[in-house]
Design a protein around this nucleic acid. Structure first.
Lengths: 216, 216
DNA sequence: CCGTTATGTAATCATCGATTACATTTCGCG
DNA sequence: CGCGAAATGTAATCGATGATTACATAACGG
């Protein structure tokens, strides 16, 4: 929790000098890094420090190394990601598991497409050792478990053609993750002038998948 | 084509000195970079130069910058990727487009899983500006076109449930690409002790997709 | 009020991509 | 041939970065 700096005394000389101790440098560094990523710039510790108006070595008081900063950044992004998905699911028809699955997929892809850099940090084991953040791993596992539950309910209600839930789960994850990554990795030529256009494609792809696994 | 160095004269002094001019530095640098990537190390121009036993500045005679080297590396990797897929398709039942699609997907995923670093370089716009290599773009487009043709044939033979080929194509690409990236990005916990296990999952996922789009 | 701890600064190092000036080899053209 | 231009590699150097260390200063508690 951010400690409240109680209006620190001014330095010996300047009346408006920045206090020696930053308010909550850790938080500010994470935000700066998130912002850097969102801007498409690559995240460097120094640049984050620069934005926090702090010396290049200061961040290392809060993070042992760059990877640790990135892991913290990923945790924050994942928190936001998960929060938005769960908020969307709050207002999704609770009775129909496949409709919920659909809403989940759409929310997932919407966030991924509107926060590409953050999604990249979350989903790729490139910025820090995969599994180095227990929180990130847990949050992600819970999203997977959420998906699993929806499919299990669908199966219980006889909505699925096959009962091989494991296989359906993996295929569904691959489909959604793949769509997000295709967008991220530039596999959609810039025909899709409208962002809205790609989101419509996302819906169609999800619907195709659901039609494929649904009983009929 | 690699120019043949016709046994260059020895230096003024040593009888076994390395010739001033490298045989085909460009090629050697690309191979060194491919090897570096395959070893999981991150590719640096200097390290490639080191492996080629050449000064750190030498590579820049062949590549204007690091990105250009990476683009050349990607082109080579893509060439191998495409060659293997097409070789596999050579011996796939030519009459059944869905069987060919299945073979395509399996070959795609097999290569991606056995050459993760190379697949990463190919498929991500991270190592160089996306579209900076016309050859890479073309090669990739041809694989997509190949998939498109298989699906069109399947539709022509009445094997598909829907005729929305565009949607099926994107979904299929997303599914296969997503599976490959999930493996790459560490989304498969290390349960799959056996590599063979993951390859079996890949087959199952592809089969599930085909079952989903097939007429019945 | 003092000292222990938390936090930031300054200086330094190795690595990397990149550029420049220079050296040597290769090759084409007369 | 042989000579000069072009190709190719070397050496030295620059700025940025991640990281470490020694030191300075502020914050907190007894």
């Amino acid at each position: 929790m951010p400690r409240q700096t109680s209006k620190p005394r001014a330095r010996h000389q300047a009346s408006e000098a920045r206090p020696y101790h930053h308010g909550d440098l850790r938080r500010v560094l994470i935000d700066a890094a998130l912002q850097l990523a969102a801007e498409g710039a690559e995240v460097s510790v120094r640049e984050a420090a620069r934005r926090a108006a702090v010396s290049p070595g200061a961040p290392f008081r809060h993070f042992p190394n760059r990877d640790a900063l990135m892991a913290a950044v990923a945790e924050e992004a994942q928190r936001r990601f998960r929060a938005e998905i769960e908020a969307t699911l709050e207002q999704a028809c609770p009775a129909n598991p496949l409709a919920r699955f659909r809403a989940f997929g759409i929310a997932y892809l919407r966030w991924a497409m509107r926060n590409p850099a953050h999604f990249e940090i979350i989903s790729t084991g490139r910025y820090f050792a995969h599994g180095s953040s227990a929180e990130l791993t847990r949050d992600n596992a819970e999203l997977v478990a959420l998906t699993e539950r929806m499919l299990a309910e669908a199966a219980a209600q006889g909505l699925l053609r096959s009962t091989d839930l494991k296989r359906i789960l993996i295929a569904g994850r691959a489909l959604i993750y793949g769509f997000a990554r295709m967008n991220l990795d530039g596999h959609f030529p810039r025909w899709g002038v409208e962002e809205r256009e790609i989101e419509r494609m996302a819906e169609e792809v999800i619907d195709l998948f659901i039609a494929g696994i649904a009983a009929r």
